[in-house]
Design a protein around this nucleic acid. Structure first.
Lengths: 226, 226, 226, 226
DNA sequence: CATGAATGAGAGTTCATTCAT
DNA sequence: GATGAATGAACTCTCATTCAT
């Protein structure tokens, strides 16, 4: 279980196939210059999305920030949505710390959960402003909302599997619907991350993490390690 | 504790001062005609916000839906934000069911929590499309986000008070920060309401409610009633 | 048989229902000012279409010529095509000289034909530059081509009826397909009008008219009046 | 008299100098590769003009269809007009069937006219979509209109010569202006070809041909062959 | 107060043309 | 010669806001 899995409900930036360029849109640039310009546009877009949000970001600003003519935007992208998903793909890659993947050792599910929550919150904090834009766009753009839901589901499923496992070992009551529980706890984590790192709610990182862990542990009735 | 208190994190429509007209904007109309037009505009705005969301709603659509000339909008409101907060005030009043307020009897905090969650989910479901618009606008409009936070805080505080009370009676560990815990659990409820009633996640009402209750109870380590 | 009937093949500006405003588009203006502006736009559009043709006419030029802001165009029309059809409707009305309609007296079909051709050529000459734009647009815009064809057909049909009548009186051979013949002779007239009045072919009006009449008469084998 | 002579009024694709490259524009390519690219562009242009018409054809589409970079277009042509006239030159050559040129035998002018009309209609039908583009462009581009007129005149002159010949042999009345008559009859043929083969008017080939022949014969009062 | 038209800044897009590689 | 990306002028269209009637 990785950090992303814990709070992935709100997270387009996570999911399988990370690193792959989205298929749609204009053909990939073939010259070195084209590659450079495209990269400059994506970097500029990220900056603009972070400071203005998705709705208020203007294509002309992105182009100007990238240092290219406004028409050049359309050499590489068809729309604001398209470059946004490119930015999101980039951030998704950045959010995957190597140490998040390689995990193991402890047999205590509490350790897994705690680690996952910690990594999720850290990743969210690192990319807070872009996450804000991402939440905005899923409200505005149905297509993005669907994408977000689809991607998140893989992780919800894994969380649900964890819960089911605990249920079979009689550590968690069978009365709970594993998937709904996973969804609820994951939602809590991502929503709190947004409140604290995007909306400025004043809560210390450790307090936040410990509280969330506490709720997870008790919700799943995981006993204190002896 | 009322329904609104449980999930008020995401809820601009709750808070002190309910029913009061916003301070800014145009003077309240005196003539009967003026009052009628204003009311028609607010009703129309609600319709338009529900079907188009905040970002895509156009002033001219609101006016046309209200059956008045587009210029008349500005006789009563200065901006889309202003009429939106008027709509929100209206919904806030609707969300206050009498039976939610008058509560009492049971001494078991579990009953309070269960009732609060049920009422919150019901209210959210009744106004799902407007809640969607509301979430959108707080992403887009800084002013609204602040407003939302401020209003929600009163209820978080009450939830926190409940937790503190339980802590003093040694029903809940003192290691928890009462306010943060209240925030996290409330966030979970409002986020799940949004997922299910706005984004169409397929979860039955009872399953949803029971799962959320379960998490609340266990997080607060409230013992089964004997 | 009227002038329009003779050469109506290429003529959107003729047909039943002349004078009626086209149904589509924005609502008709309700204030005096709105009516004035709309009329100014149509007049300006005519000017611009006449000097630039349909393809090169810019909406901003039409607005500037009308003395209104460019956005005001869209208060009254949805597109260049729409205002063009308005202009065409206007010209159609102008092309209907009263004396063209009220005809009668002579029993000799040669007189009818000669009068029809003369009136058609005169009308075309009066509106030569707009007719040029009209021909351009029917090449460019499928919708207009269809419209033109549909409207023209009524007149072709009447010409065909004339021919059929002559065939029944054995003045014209029955081997001819009446409709195709009517189409061919009408096409000839409208095409020559375009060549002479739009493209500047140097042919005197009387020579042109007499030649066309000659061809009609002989094609239909109408005997010289004794 | 050739097929092209009958209806050449509307036909840029016919005239003296067939096969010659236009004088203006870039120098002819020397290298084999250059020749290949140029030919590919012309072939692609024809395709694009046929499906999109002149106005809507884009340089970039032509280049892409030719399988070359868009910039390469300008190695060979200066403008859309220039490559269009190249395409037209190519079609003009194709329209010259050998059997159209080699004619003789019959002394009856009716035979000449009938053969010419038949060949013209066939040629037009073979190239209908390009002829449509050709008519469009002469409406839009003054230069092309002039070119069309100039080229057509040679054939009109020949038709006129035929008529003058018939006048001198007292087969046609001297009251007719030979050139205007030639123009009118030729216009009729080309316009009908356009109606039927481009605009989809439902007339059978034979009916069309016979009707047009009939009008020619009677207009020129050519007696039935005994 | 209501009307409904006018305004015009501003954003998005297109594409012929140029040019460094 | 070919490439393919960059350019930027030119246009279209939208809509919040104003204002004369």
């Amino acid at each position: 279980m990785t950090a992303r899995e814990a709070g992935a409900v709100a997270d387009t930036a996570t999911g399988p196939g990370a690193g792959a360029k989205p298929a749609g849109g204009r053909p990939a640039p073939k010259s070195a210059r084209g590659i450079r310009t495209r990269a400059a546009l994506v970097a500029a877009a990220r900056q603009v999305f972070e400071s203005d949000g998705f709705v208020d970001a203007r294509i002309s600003d992105i182009a100007r920030t990238a240092g290219v003519a406004s028409g050049s935007f359309y050499t590489h992208f068809d729309s604001k949505e398209e470059i946004f998903s490119e930015v999101v793909a980039q951030v998704r890659d950045e959010m995957l710390h190597p140490h998040v993947r390689a995990r193991g050792g402890s047999a205590d599910p509490r350790d897994w959960i705690a680690a996952a929550n910690r990594e999720y919150l850290r990743a969210y904090r690192r990319n807070a402003r872009l996450m804000a834009a991402l939440e905005q766009v899923s409200r505005v753009d149905q297509q993005f909302a669907a994408l977000r839901a689809e991607r998140a589901s893989a992780f919800i499923d894994r969380n649900a599997a964890l819960i089911r496992d605990l249920q079979q070992r009689d550590l968690v009551t069978s009365r709970l619907d594993a998937r709904v529980t996973a969804l609820a706890l994951s939602s809590m984590v991502s929503r709190m991350a947004s409140l604290v790192f995007v909306e400025g709610e004043q809560i210390g990182f450790d307090t936040l993490l410990e509280t969330l862990n506490w709720i997870w542990f008790n919700a799943l009735q995981l006993p204190e390690p002896s």
